[in-house]
Simulated assay, not measured.
Amino acid sequence: MLDHAEDGLSLSTMQTLLLESDDIQGFLQDFTDLLARQLSLGGPERWCAVSLLRDRKAATAASSSPQALALDELQNSFTDGPCMTAIRENAVIRVGDLRDDDRWPAYAAAELEQGIRAVLGLPFHLGDEAKAGLNVYSATPHDFDPATIETIVLHVEQASSALRLAVRQALHSDAARDLRAAMESRTEIDLAVGILMGRNRCSQEEAVEILKTASNHRNVKLRDLATDLIAS
């Protein structure tokens, strides 16, 4: 059982991890490392991994150790399991003992061969932008008591808050880059149109048509043609 007073993964810690990470994957890696260490204090070892769901297929994005990675990739090789179910149903999925659980027989048999007895799957709450889940593995049957589950849920909620911010920042950054590129392209095209107007003593509309016609005939993007014209 974990004591909340010993919890080193507060919301402020999550935000610090996010700020210090190079990207979302780096944040998830730091999160799984810290969480696995925290969950293993004073008790059996637990392994953590985060899977992202894309096109109805799960892929491991971060793991606390090579063993955690192997366990998670094993789960993701099946069409369903605790993580997929947790994401799909937006609920905590607890497997007390894989020997007694009949929800995913083939998956359970594969994990039992690796010495895993208990699994916990939890969804991250990221809105519509992305879908992800946390998996916690243990070799001890019935390892996750209600207090431990409550603490892990709190960690996931805090990580979800930080991740939602990271996803929004990434989306805004992409939009800003697209806007800057569009503005730069527009500026170069306008300059090229001005050059053509001066050279050919024509109107703006006629210069635009000249540029478009040349672009089509040469099979060159309008911006690239404008850049070449400015440089010539």
Rank of each mutant, 00 (worst) to 15 (best):
S64I: 06
S65N: 02
Q67P: 01
Q67I: 09
Q67Y: 11
Q67N: 09
Q67T: 13
Q67M: 13
A70Q: 14
A70D: 15
L71A: 03
E73L: 02
Q75A: 04
N76L: 03
S77A: 11
S77L: 00
M84R: 03
A86M: 09
A86I: 10
E89V: 00
N90K: 12
I93F: 03
V95L: 11
G96K: 06
D97E: 02
L98Y: 05
R99S: 08
R99I: 00
D100W: 00
D100Y: 02
D101Y: 01
D102I: 10
P105W: 04
P105C: 09
A106P: 02
A106D: 15
A106W: 04
A108V: 03
Q114H: 12
R117S: 01
R117V: 00
A118I: 03
D128A: 15
A130Q: 10
N135G: 04
Y137Q: 03
S138W: 06
A139L: 00
H142V: 05
P146R: 08
A147H: 10
A147I: 12
T148V: 08
E150P: 00
I152M: 10
L154Y: 08
L163R: 05
A166D: 05
A166T: 05
L171M: 12
D178M: 00
L179S: 14
R180I: 10
A182G: 11
S185Y: 05
T187N: 01
E188R: 12
I189W: 08
D190T: 13
L191R: 13
V193W: 02
G194H: 02
